[in-house]
Design a protein around this nucleic acid. Structure first.
Length: 481
RNA sequence: CGAGGUGUGGCUCAGUUUGGUAGAGCACUACGUUCGGGACGUAGGGGCCGCAGGUUCGAAUCCUGUCACCUCGACCA
């Protein structure tokens, strides 16, 4: 295969051969990240950060449309504040980083570097919420957080990562639950419409929910290798945090009440999800909505009279239409450029050379494959816009097909083991009695853990896959990143 | 935290078994020829071999220690 030729610069390990190495090759060779001297802390390079900026822009717009405001909380949390909510501190304490010195002086109280900011928001809400008129507060922040992970992987699990965390506070439980569900829907729409990534909406089991939450909802996506990735979460806190932090408001009837809270977040892990959902052996495949470069123009026989001028003309037209376009007029050969932009996942490539110019056309190729097609120059902008949509649709369909092909309904744990053996990793759909012992036993016997209780339930049988007692719900199981 | 692996120009690695003054390909610079699927020639520049000790006349190579990163597991966005 030509790709293994010695002259190939930056060859990518095939997915089939070693999925983990394939992933690492892509993040490095597409220049998404670079490692640093601190384990688990990475440089997000311009191309990777541009993807994040596009994610931020789209999501932030959605947040604003649903009434949220951005704020910025400090990155340090005093130990006493972190400890106010019992479950919360137990959940996060094992993985927080501590600041103990200020310059040369030891601090009176050590400060934790935020692993998440519930405690800070609560501490603030205590000060600003006094009346039902102060509610709701719909806040969000775009920051980084730190969790001292033992095992790290670029984007999927780093010690510092970028995210947004929404924190809202409401007068009633109903309103807060509604918010929790609304944001889960926002994430779902974003993943499907902007990332071309189908997700399963569901509720986490008791053992898997967020530290301090009444209930945790999540969207789960299935990666190309059949492993599951949690792509976003939305939590309902009830009034537990309000009670722990002593947040009360005077209601219309002049009685003091505890407000109800939510939090929800997505992280730079989404970039990892994009890579593992859509990528192939030629490299990245980026969803058009978040691709830093949506269209690359590669001139052929660039030195020939008029080629570059025409290429620049096309560039200006596409740019004026609001398309993120790049013209590569470097001295590299066209073949080099084709491979390079494929590796970087650019959705659409436009080629223009003397033959095309003579025919009043250009060639267009899609990252999702298929034949190059000739396009009349006068309809280029329209065609490119159509092709970007087409690439998105094809990407979504392929990801959905992969998920469906790898979703296996099972009624016994033996069946789970067998299907995983025969057909590879994927989502297992199986009934569950609701007992944590069974959840653990399934993991123990088959290697798959509960991912979520899908909101769209199916009645596969009336018995628990593990113990055979009456089932309460269908659970989606899988191996997770 | 358990099990493996790796540290040698910007990148990928050879050299380590058997110690003897640091190599290749790619990338980079200049010039020329090329240019529709990872072009070629010529000439260049660039490395206290992760770090610290030790053995030795002499260490990338042997010994001891240490640090870091990667992969796989258990746990987590």
């Amino acid at each position: 295969m030509a790709k293994n030729d010695k002259k190939m610069v930056g060859a990518i390990t095939s997915m089939e051969e070693d999925f983990a190495q394939w992933y690492t090759d892509i993040v490095k060779k597409a220049e998404l990240v670079a490692y640093t001297s601190v384990k688990g802390c990475m440089v997000i390079r311009p191309y990777g950060y541009a993807i994040w900026e596009n994610i931020q822009h789209i999501l932030d717009t959605m947040f604003k449309e649903t009434g949220h405001e951005n704020v910025n909380m400090p990155m340090f949390i005093p130990e006493s504040l972190l400890q106010k909510e019992k479950d919360h501190v137990e959940g996060f304490a094992p993985e927080v980083a501590w600041v103990t010195m200020g310059g040369a002086a030891k601090l009176e109280e050590r400060l934790c570097v935020r692993p998440t900011s519930e405690t800070l928001f609560c501490d603030h809400y205590k000060d600003i919420v006094h009346s039902y008129r102060d509610l709701p507060k719909l806040y969000n922040q775009w920051v980084s957080v730190v969790r001292w992970e033992k095992t790290t992987r670029p984007f999927l699990r780093s010690r510092e990562f970028l995210w947004q965390e929404g924190h809202t506070i409401h007068a009633t439980a109903e309103e807060a639950i509604e918010e929790t569900e609304r944001m889960l829907d926002v994430y779902t729409r974003f993943c499907e419409e902007s990332l071309a990534m189908p997700v399963v909406k569901g509720k986490k089991t008791e053992s898997d929910k967020f530290a301090g939450a009444v209930s945790t909802y999540a969207i789960e996506a299935l990666m190309h290798d059949g492993k599951a990735l949690q792509a976003g979460t939305s939590h309902y806190f009830g009034d537990g945090f309000a009670k722990a932090f002593d947040i009360q408001y005077a209601d219309k009837d002049n009685t003091l009440k505890y407000p109800h809270q939510t939090s929800w977040g997505v992280t730079t892990r989404l970039i990892g999800a994009i890579i593992m959902t859509h990528g192939d052996d030629s490299g990245l495949v980026l969803p058009p909505a978040v691709a830093p470069i949506q269209v690359v123009i590669v001139p052929a026989a660039m030195h020939k009279e008029g080629v570059l001028d025409k290429a620049r003309e096309l560039y200006a037209q596409l740019k004026a239409a609001g398309i993120r376009v790049k013209l590569d007029d470097t001295e590299n050969s066209p073949g080099w450029k084709f491979a390079e932009y494929e590796m970087r996942g650019v959705p659409v490539r436009v080629e223009i050379g003397p033959r095309d110019i003579a025919a009043g056309q250009c060639m267009i190729a899609l990252r999702t494959g298929g034949e190059k097609t000739a396009v009349p120059l006068e309809s280029l902008v329209q065609t490119v816009q159509d092709k970007l949509r087409e690439v998105h649709d094809v990407m979504y369909q392929r990801a959905l097909e992969n998920r469906e092909k790898r979703t296996y309904p099972c009624t016994t744990t033996e069946e789970i083991t067998q299907v995983l053996e025969e057909r590879g990793d994927g989502f297992i759909e199986a009934m569950w009695c609701g007992d944590e012992a069974c959840e653990d036993a399934v993991k123990e016997r088959t290697g798959v853990g509960s991912r979520c209780i899908p909101l769209a339930q199916k009645q596969l049988s009336d018995k628990c896959v593990c113990c055979g007692k009456p089932a309460r719900c269908m659970v989606l199981w899988g191996k997770a990143y």
